[in-house]
Nucleic acid binder design. Structure first.
Lengths: 242, 242
DNA sequence: CGCTGTTTGCTAACGGTGTTCACTTAAGCG
DNA sequence: CGCTTAAGTGAACACCGTTAGCAAACAGCG
């Protein structure tokens, strides 16, 4: 079966990624391990760049599934708890899959600049939508203090509206202030997780979890949402089923 | 002169980095351009990894110089303005040097895991100290609202104290609460700049500057410092002299 | 059955990479 | 002058991505 071969290729590529870093992913090594030669792989994959894009898309899907599974493990009505769980699941996946996270969220250093990365972009969009719906829900339920439209500034407003439009949310569904606090929160989560995975404070800090939790707490209280410490959460779900 | 040859090697490597990405830096290409052969470079550099580490260290020094020069262009007493200028200089350098920023602040994907990256780490420390002294000055002058020691939590306190110690600041020079707000601010700046340079919102946002400014404003007001918009700043210094 | 067309994988080859080793050349110096 | 040391070279090894041409297997069909 053709499908199975492609799956095997991607699975071996993925393993080489986590074991030897993105630089250690090579068509020749994959072919060697499969008992065939490198040119044969070109029947399944148009090149190394496309293969990396493909597994990146797969990893976005996997991360989205992981976060969704964690989210689903909480009572559907408890939006606040679900947000805590989803964000912690994101961090947990990131630090247990640093190689994957690096190619997904780091600079696309290996891909050719003219490579077609749309599949990975699509999958990234699907991943983001998980958090969009959670935040949308939160804003709809709770009375989150949102900045008024007048105090946002024209350039920022334009960017936020184009952002919301691309995501597919009208000004009615998502006010500009909501888009602003959403991106602000995402920037902070992104920052603290990147910092941990890229080991940017690695030589001076041993465990970044307290920083993540501190950021989470500051974020939640800033949103008028109660912060739920880890201990009061029950066993967190850290991986997708299957 | 031996020193000059090494400088030329690093300068060509740097140009290849910005023109073709980190994957486009190769000893053979550098040697070709210098009119010699690749093994000859081994008289000056122990290998490609060490060369990348060396130019990374240089780039940290350059960034530190750029930020310091921008900082020095403001009145020494106006700490608030200096902080604005320094942070904007950081962003300006980052977005005008995306390839450099990626190897400095992104995942170290190309370096061998057992490579000796201490020179780059040292230079990164020197870069960070620029901001440490500015923040130290700010905390000393203004009455920044700092979280009390009791409300920080034992794990976080331990990390923060070890952090301050490594940087060389005692509990007297830098209270735990100060270290916390400092790292929190750094996380947010790091997050928004990484997001811009790595083009993480690139398909949905055209200009990240409003987001950076919004983050800067929120950050400053949270610190009890007045936010100074770009227009009220005079011409910003965006690069080092020479 | 035999004849086609397609799929699959191969070998060979080209040009690129990092790195090591043995060697020559040149410079400096007592 | 002779000796030592540094600088650079060429050949070689083991990798890499990619292309071109070819052979075998397989499917469908008359």
């Amino acid at each position: 079966m053709r499908e199975a071969t492609l799956t095997e290729i991607k699975s071996i590529a993925r393993r080489h990624l986590v074991e030897h870093g993105v630089a250690g992913v090579s068509l020749r090594a994959i072919a060697r391990e499969m008992g065939m030669t490198a040119p044969g792989l070109y029947r399944y994959v148009p090149g190394i760049d496309a293969l990396l894009v493909a597994i990146t898309a797969d990893m976005f899907d996997e991360l989205a599934d992981t976060v969704a599974a964690a989210d689903a493990s909480a009572p559907a009505e408890d939006t606040e708890l679900r947000l805590h769980i989803a964000l912690r699941a994101l961090r947990a996946w990131a630090i247990t899959h640093p190689a994957e996270f690096s190619v997904m969220f780091g600079p696309s250093s290996r891909l050719d600049l003219e490579a077609d990365i749309t599949p990975a972009l699509e999958a990234g969009r699907r991943f983001a939508s998980t958090f969009f719906s959670l935040c949308d829900r939160l804003i709809r339920e709770k009375d989150i203090p949102l900045p008024a439209d007048e105090e946002i500034g024209p350039e920022l407003t334009a960017e936020l509206r184009s952002f919301a439009d691309t995501v597919g949310l009208s000004a009615h569904a998502m006010p500009t202030g909501a888009a602003l606090v959403l991106t602000r929160c995402w920037i902070r989560i992104y920052g603290v997780v990147c910092m941990e995975v890229f080991q940017h404070l690695g030589f001076v800090v041993t465990d970044m979890e307290p920083f993540f939790e501190s950021e989470l707490q500051d974020l939640m209280t800033g949103l008028g949402v109660r912060y739920i410490p880890i201990e009061h959460m029950g066993r967190p779900v850290t991986d997708a089923p299957g």
